[in-house]
Design a protein around this nucleic acid. Structure first.
Lengths: 124, 124
DNA sequence: GCTAAAAATTCCGATACCGAAACAAATTTT
DNA sequence: AAAATTTGTTTCGGTATCGGAATTTTTAGC
Protein backbone atom coordinates (compact mmCIF):
# COMPACT_ATOMS: atom_id res chain seq x y z
CA UNK A 1 0.00 0.00 0.00
CA UNK A 2 1.63 3.16 -1.23
CA UNK A 3 2.01 6.17 1.01
CA UNK A 4 -0.04 9.00 -0.44
CA UNK A 5 1.27 12.47 0.23
CA UNK A 6 0.76 15.89 -1.20
CA UNK A 7 3.91 17.74 -2.05
CA UNK A 8 3.43 20.14 0.82
CA UNK A 9 2.82 17.35 3.29
CA UNK A 10 5.93 15.61 2.05
CA UNK A 11 8.10 18.66 2.55
CA UNK A 12 6.61 19.42 5.92
CA UNK A 13 7.15 15.85 7.02
CA UNK A 14 10.74 16.09 5.89
CA UNK A 15 11.23 19.39 7.65
CA UNK A 16 9.88 18.17 10.96
CA UNK A 17 11.90 15.01 10.87
CA UNK A 18 15.05 16.85 9.84
CA UNK A 19 14.68 19.47 12.53
CA UNK A 20 14.11 16.81 15.17
CA UNK A 21 17.13 14.96 13.93
CA UNK A 22 19.36 18.04 13.93
CA UNK A 23 18.24 18.97 17.41
CA UNK A 24 19.05 15.71 19.06
CA UNK A 25 22.71 15.08 19.53
CA UNK A 26 22.66 11.85 17.58
CA UNK A 27 25.57 11.30 15.24
CA UNK A 28 24.69 13.27 12.15
CA UNK A 29 25.30 11.22 9.08
CA UNK A 30 25.78 12.58 5.61
CA UNK A 31 23.16 11.87 2.98
CA UNK A 32 25.33 9.14 1.53
CA UNK A 33 25.91 7.52 4.84
CA UNK A 34 22.22 7.57 5.63
CA UNK A 35 21.24 6.21 2.23
CA UNK A 36 23.77 3.43 2.63
CA UNK A 37 22.64 2.58 6.14
CA UNK A 38 18.98 2.45 5.16
CA UNK A 39 19.69 0.35 2.11
CA UNK A 40 21.63 -2.19 4.13
CA UNK A 41 18.81 -2.54 6.63
CA UNK A 42 15.81 -2.39 4.32
CA UNK A 43 16.78 -4.26 1.19
CA UNK A 44 17.59 -7.94 0.87
CA UNK A 45 21.21 -9.03 1.35
CA UNK A 46 23.89 -9.69 0.39
CA UNK A 47 25.27 -6.18 0.33
CA UNK A 48 28.72 -5.59 -1.10
CA UNK A 49 30.75 -2.47 -1.65
CA UNK A 50 30.42 -2.81 -5.38
CA UNK A 51 26.69 -3.39 -5.16
CA UNK A 52 26.16 -0.37 -2.96
CA UNK A 53 28.28 1.77 -5.27
CA UNK A 54 26.02 0.79 -8.16
CA UNK A 55 22.83 1.23 -6.20
CA UNK A 56 23.76 4.69 -5.02
CA UNK A 57 25.63 5.62 -8.22
CA UNK A 58 28.68 6.57 -6.24
CA UNK A 59 32.32 5.55 -6.48
CA UNK A 60 33.61 2.58 -4.55
CA UNK A 61 36.01 4.67 -2.47
CA UNK A 62 33.02 6.74 -1.38
CA UNK A 63 31.36 3.58 -0.10
CA UNK A 64 34.53 2.50 1.67
CA UNK A 65 34.71 5.84 3.44
CA UNK A 66 31.07 5.69 4.43
CA UNK A 67 31.62 2.19 5.80
CA UNK A 68 34.59 3.38 7.81
CA UNK A 69 32.41 5.97 9.42
CA UNK A 70 29.37 3.75 9.95
CA UNK A 71 31.66 1.04 11.23
CA UNK A 72 33.30 3.20 13.86
CA UNK A 73 29.83 4.23 15.00
CA UNK A 74 29.05 0.51 15.17
CA UNK A 75 26.02 0.92 12.92
CA UNK A 76 27.19 -1.68 10.39
CA UNK A 77 29.93 -4.28 10.29
CA UNK A 78 32.22 -5.55 7.57
CA UNK A 79 32.68 -9.25 7.03
CA UNK A 80 34.80 -11.04 4.47
CA UNK A 81 32.81 -13.12 2.03
CA UNK A 82 34.24 -16.60 2.54
CA UNK A 83 33.17 -17.84 -0.86
CA UNK A 84 34.88 -14.95 -2.64
CA UNK A 85 37.39 -13.37 -0.38
CA UNK A 86 37.74 -10.28 -2.50
CA UNK A 87 34.27 -9.22 -1.50
CA UNK A 88 33.16 -7.60 1.70
CA UNK A 89 29.70 -8.23 3.04
CA UNK A 90 28.05 -5.40 4.89
CA UNK A 91 26.13 -6.62 7.89
CA UNK A 92 23.79 -5.16 10.43
CA UNK A 93 24.50 -4.54 14.07
CA UNK A 94 22.29 -4.28 17.13
CA UNK A 95 23.21 -0.65 17.50
CA UNK A 96 22.26 0.04 13.89
CA UNK A 97 18.86 -1.56 14.39
CA UNK A 98 18.22 0.52 17.45
CA UNK A 99 19.36 3.66 15.70
CA UNK A 100 17.06 3.13 12.74
CA UNK A 101 14.16 2.12 14.91
CA UNK A 102 14.44 5.39 16.76
CA UNK A 103 14.82 7.27 13.56
CA UNK A 104 11.68 5.63 12.22
CA UNK A 105 9.77 6.66 15.31
CA UNK A 106 10.99 10.18 14.79
CA UNK A 107 9.57 10.26 11.26
CA UNK A 108 6.29 8.73 12.39
CA UNK A 109 6.02 11.37 15.10
CA UNK A 110 6.77 14.08 12.55
CA UNK A 111 3.97 12.75 10.37
CA UNK A 112 1.51 12.74 13.21
CA UNK A 113 2.24 16.34 14.06
CA UNK A 114 1.54 17.65 10.60
CA UNK A 115 -1.29 20.14 10.83
CA UNK A 116 -4.22 20.96 8.64
CA UNK A 117 -3.16 22.48 5.33
CA UNK A 118 -4.24 25.96 6.43
CA UNK A 119 -2.05 25.79 9.52
CA UNK A 120 1.13 25.28 7.60
CA UNK A 121 3.01 28.55 7.52
CA UNK A 122 3.45 29.13 3.87
CA UNK A 123 3.43 27.76 0.38
CA UNK A 124 6.19 27.58 -2.11
CA UNK B 1 -4.75 16.07 8.69
CA UNK B 2 -1.80 14.14 10.06
CA UNK B 3 0.20 11.78 7.89
CA UNK B 4 -0.20 8.28 9.24
CA UNK B 5 2.75 6.00 8.74
CA UNK B 6 4.00 2.77 10.18
CA UNK B 7 7.59 2.79 11.27
CA UNK B 8 8.60 0.54 8.43
CA UNK B 9 6.80 2.67 5.88
CA UNK B 10 8.49 5.73 7.29
CA UNK B 11 11.95 4.25 6.99
CA UNK B 12 11.29 2.89 3.53
CA UNK B 13 9.99 6.27 2.41
CA UNK B 14 13.10 7.87 3.81
CA UNK B 15 15.33 5.33 2.12
CA UNK B 16 13.78 5.76 -1.30
CA UNK B 17 13.88 9.51 -1.12
CA UNK B 18 17.44 9.53 0.16
CA UNK B 19 18.67 7.15 -2.50
CA UNK B 20 16.99 9.19 -5.22
CA UNK B 21 18.53 12.31 -3.81
CA UNK B 22 22.01 10.82 -3.60
CA UNK B 23 21.78 9.54 -7.14
CA UNK B 24 20.88 12.80 -8.75
CA UNK B 25 23.74 15.20 -9.06
CA UNK B 26 21.93 17.93 -7.17
CA UNK B 27 23.97 19.84 -4.61
CA UNK B 28 24.02 17.64 -1.56
CA UNK B 29 23.25 19.62 1.51
CA UNK B 30 24.13 18.63 5.02
CA UNK B 31 21.35 17.82 7.46
CA UNK B 32 21.68 21.24 9.02
CA UNK B 33 21.57 23.03 5.73
CA UNK B 34 18.51 21.08 4.67
CA UNK B 35 16.73 21.69 7.97
CA UNK B 36 17.47 25.38 7.67
CA UNK B 37 16.32 25.59 4.08
CA UNK B 38 13.06 23.79 4.81
CA UNK B 39 12.38 25.92 7.86
CA UNK B 40 12.87 29.12 5.89
CA UNK B 41 10.45 28.00 3.21
CA UNK B 42 7.80 26.30 5.31
CA UNK B 43 7.45 28.35 8.45
CA UNK B 44 6.24 31.92 8.71
CA UNK B 45 8.78 34.75 8.45
CA UNK B 46 10.65 36.66 9.57
CA UNK B 47 13.65 34.36 9.82
CA UNK B 48 16.78 35.63 11.51
CA UNK B 49 20.10 34.00 12.29
CA UNK B 50 19.34 34.05 15.98
CA UNK B 51 15.88 32.61 15.47
CA UNK B 52 17.17 29.80 13.31
CA UNK B 53 19.91 29.03 15.81
CA UNK B 54 17.28 28.65 18.51
CA UNK B 55 14.91 26.66 16.34
CA UNK B 56 17.59 24.21 15.32
CA UNK B 57 19.43 24.31 18.67
CA UNK B 58 22.67 25.08 16.90
CA UNK B 59 25.28 27.81 17.38
CA UNK B 60 24.99 31.04 15.46
CA UNK B 61 28.24 30.50 13.56
CA UNK B 62 26.80 27.24 12.33
CA UNK B 63 23.87 29.17 10.90
CA UNK B 64 26.16 31.73 9.32
CA UNK B 65 28.13 28.98 7.64
CA UNK B 66 25.00 27.27 6.41
CA UNK B 67 23.78 30.58 5.02
CA UNK B 68 27.07 31.11 3.23
CA UNK B 69 26.65 27.77 1.55
CA UNK B 70 22.95 28.13 0.75
CA UNK B 71 23.62 31.63 -0.47
CA UNK B 72 26.32 30.67 -2.90
CA UNK B 73 23.98 28.01 -4.24
CA UNK B 74 21.40 30.80 -4.54
CA UNK B 75 18.86 28.85 -2.50
CA UNK B 76 18.33 31.65 0.03
CA UNK B 77 19.35 35.29 0.27
CA UNK B 78 20.43 37.53 3.11
CA UNK B 79 18.86 40.92 3.57
CA UNK B 80 19.54 43.53 6.24
CA UNK B 81 16.57 44.24 8.45
CA UNK B 82 16.03 47.97 7.92
CA UNK B 83 14.22 48.43 11.23
CA UNK B 84 17.07 46.85 13.19
CA UNK B 85 20.19 46.76 11.15
CA UNK B 86 21.93 44.31 13.38
CA UNK B 87 19.57 41.63 12.19
CA UNK B 88 19.73 39.70 8.97
CA UNK B 89 16.56 38.45 7.36
CA UNK B 90 16.74 35.21 5.49
CA UNK B 91 14.71 35.31 2.33
CA UNK B 92 13.65 32.87 -0.32
CA UNK B 93 14.83 32.76 -3.90
CA UNK B 94 13.32 31.43 -7.09
CA UNK B 95 15.98 28.79 -7.30
CA UNK B 96 15.26 27.67 -3.76
CA UNK B 97 11.57 27.32 -4.52
CA UNK B 98 12.33 25.24 -7.57
CA UNK B 99 14.77 23.10 -5.65
CA UNK B 100 12.31 22.35 -2.86
CA UNK B 101 9.47 21.76 -5.25
CA UNK B 102 11.52 19.12 -7.02
CA UNK B 103 12.57 17.65 -3.73
CA UNK B 104 8.95 17.43 -2.66
CA UNK B 105 8.07 15.63 -5.86
CA UNK B 106 10.87 13.22 -5.17
CA UNK B 107 9.46 12.36 -1.75
CA UNK B 108 5.95 12.00 -3.14
CA UNK B 109 7.25 9.64 -5.80
CA UNK B 110 9.12 7.67 -3.15
CA UNK B 111 5.89 7.31 -1.21
CA UNK B 112 3.97 6.11 -4.23
CA UNK B 113 6.51 3.42 -4.94
CA UNK B 114 6.34 1.88 -1.51
CA UNK B 115 5.17 -1.68 -1.87
CA UNK B 116 2.98 -3.95 0.15
CA UNK B 117 4.53 -4.84 3.51
CA UNK B 118 5.43 -8.34 2.32
CA UNK B 119 7.40 -6.96 -0.61
CA UNK B 120 9.72 -4.93 1.55
CA UNK B 121 13.01 -6.75 1.78
CA UNK B 122 13.43 -7.13 5.47
CA UNK B 123 12.45 -6.05 8.92
CA UNK B 124 14.55 -4.54 11.60
C1' DG C 1 51.64 -21.37 -13.69
C1' DC C 2 51.12 -16.94 -15.60
C1' DT C 3 48.50 -13.17 -16.97
C1' DA C 4 44.35 -10.55 -16.81
C1' DA C 5 40.44 -9.08 -14.37
C1' DA C 6 37.74 -7.88 -10.31
C1' DA C 7 37.02 -6.14 -5.51
C1' DA C 8 38.14 -3.23 -2.12
C1' DT C 9 41.28 -0.11 0.05
C1' DT C 10 44.82 3.46 0.44
C1' DC C 11 46.89 7.57 -0.99
C1' DC C 12 46.76 12.36 -2.65
C1' DG C 13 45.61 17.25 -2.67
C1' DA C 14 41.65 20.05 -2.16
C1' DT C 15 37.49 21.53 -0.05
C1' DA C 16 33.94 21.78 3.64
C1' DC C 17 32.66 21.61 8.14
C1' DC C 18 33.01 21.87 13.26
C1' DG C 19 32.95 24.39 18.14
C1' DA C 20 34.73 28.01 20.74
C1' DA C 21 36.53 32.36 21.25
C1' DA C 22 37.32 36.88 19.54
C1' DC C 23 35.50 40.46 16.85
C1' DA C 24 32.67 44.40 14.57
C1' DA C 25 28.49 46.95 14.20
C1' DA C 26 24.08 48.51 15.77
C1' DT C 27 21.05 49.29 19.53
C1' DT C 28 19.55 49.89 24.25
C1' DT C 29 20.41 51.25 28.91
C1' DT C 30 21.84 54.32 32.36
C1' DA D 1 27.45 60.16 25.67
C1' DA D 2 29.51 56.14 27.80
C1' DA D 3 28.75 51.52 28.95
C1' DA D 4 26.45 47.34 28.33
C1' DT D 5 23.83 44.31 25.40
C1' DT D 6 22.40 42.21 21.20
C1' DT D 7 23.26 40.48 16.51
C1' DG D 8 25.88 38.47 13.31
C1' DT D 9 30.50 37.39 11.32
C1' DT D 10 35.34 36.06 11.35
C1' DT D 11 39.18 33.55 12.90
C1' DC D 12 41.48 29.54 14.74
C1' DG D 13 43.03 24.77 14.91
C1' DG D 14 41.34 20.43 14.06
C1' DT D 15 38.62 16.84 11.74
C1' DA D 16 35.89 14.85 7.92
C1' DT D 17 34.79 14.34 3.36
C1' DC D 18 35.52 14.56 -1.60
C1' DG D 19 36.99 12.59 -6.34
C1' DG D 20 40.19 10.08 -8.64
C1' DA D 21 44.56 7.61 -9.40
C1' DA D 22 47.36 4.09 -7.73
C1' DT D 23 47.74 -0.17 -4.92
C1' DT D 24 46.84 -4.74 -2.76
C1' DT D 25 44.59 -9.02 -2.60
C1' DT D 26 42.00 -12.55 -4.62
C1' DT D 27 39.89 -14.96 -8.41
C1' DA D 28 39.29 -16.27 -13.30
C1' DG D 29 41.00 -17.31 -17.94
C1' DC D 30 44.05 -19.71 -20.80
Amino acid sequence: MPVELTELQALDLWRRAMVSSVRRDAPDLSARQMALLLTVYLTPPPHTVRGMAETLRVSKPAITRALDRLGELDLVRRKQDESDRRSVLIQRTVRGSVFLREFGELIVAAGRSIAEPERVGSRL
